[in-house]
């Protein structure tokens, strides 16, 4: 017994150090698991509050710039409404049957975000109260921003596209070949498009849009344009550098895409996997 006490007196701090480090690494590794959810939900209550306060001041300072971009956005939407063919407007059944509305847009604001880490996240000031659910896509006026990972009552946690685990199905417009859009760190204005076979004729300046093959983003949201491409030796696929349209540094007003009947689709796909 005395030996045991002596042992602890001598090596207690070393043991404490090892235990705490193991605990920390466990936290890091299990970032996407249950522990992380619990942690984020309780943490968001506190840190979300403070971030909220700071952002209130920051939002005020940015009002003029934000106002300008909102005006541009509004103009674009108005233009779209004006461009809808008259037949669609006259067809009353579309307005009455809400099942035909495929995507609902929920405007949200950013509470806090990181952009310069290896794995970046965004916290939204809206949560399940406003109709957000995990798995919904987040876009800005200029392109794709991320995917909602966790939702609490008042806040939502978004996996940014600037995250090493984020894959977005993207398409080269007019060519109809699609691949995965990934981020490799360092430059926040550049992502890489993978798995485009090398026989496709592409050129610098081609537009890259979302493919619509996932259930998260609808087809045709502009992401960026091809900045540079090359074929790595021994590969059958291009390595394409895409310059993003949006600047995640400055985006504050975001939109969440709520796809109708998404549960039905997930159920169907789950059945396919099990069979």
């Amino acid at each position: 017994m005395q030996n045991l006490l002596l042992f602890f007196a001598k090596f207690g701090s070393v043991i404490l150090f090892i235990v705490l480090e193991i605990f920390c690494f466990n936290l890091i590794v299990s970032q996407n698991d249950k522990q992380k959810n619990i942690y984020l939900h309780s943490a968001n209550l506190v840190s979300g509050q403070i971030n909220n306060r700071v952002n209130n001041v920051k939002n005020y300072l940015n009002l003029r710039k934000e106002n300008d971009s909102l005006r541009v956005e509004n103009a674009r939407l108005l233009q779209q409404i004006l461009n809808i063919p008259e037949a669609v407007i006259n067809n009353e059944s579309i307005e009455k049957d809400s099942n035909l509305i495929d995507y609902k847009i929920i405007p949200v604001t950013v509470c806090s975000k990181t952009v310069r880490l290896r794995n970046n996240h965004i916290t939204l000031c809206q949560g399940s109260k406003n109709g957000l659910k995990s798995g919904m896509g987040v876009i800005s006026a200029n392109g794709v921003v991320g995917i909602i990972k966790e939702v609490s009552k008042n806040y939502a946690h978004v996996l940014s596209v600037l995250h090493s685990q984020c894959r977005i199905s993207a398409l080269i417009e007019d060519k109809n070949y699609f691949g995965n859009l990934i981020w490799r760190g360092s430059d926040i204005r550049k992502m890489y498009l993978e798995a485009i076979p090398k026989h496709v004729n592409i050129s610098v300046g081609d537009e890259v849009v979302t493919s619509g093959y996932s259930i998260i983003f609808p087809k045709g949201i502009a992401i960026g344009k091809i900045d540079n491409f090359r074929i790595p030796s021994g590969s059958d696929n291009y390595e394409i550098e895409v310059a993003l349209y949006n600047d995640l540094f400055s985006e504050i007003n975001l939109y969440v895409i709520d796809k109708n009947k998404v549960e039905e689709l997930i159920e169907l796909e789950a059945q396919l996997i099990y069979e």
Binding site: F17, L20, C24, F25, V46, N51, L117
Partner: peptide, 23 residues
């Protein structure tokens, strides 16, 4: 570390570094 982690959305990363320099 864990306090700072809460605000960086990175549970464990700052904490592990702080524990290490404490050691």
């Amino acid at each position: 570390g864990i306090t700072v982690d809460m605000f960086y959305d990175s549970p464990g990363i700052h904490a592990s570094a702080c524990v290490f320099i404490g050691f």
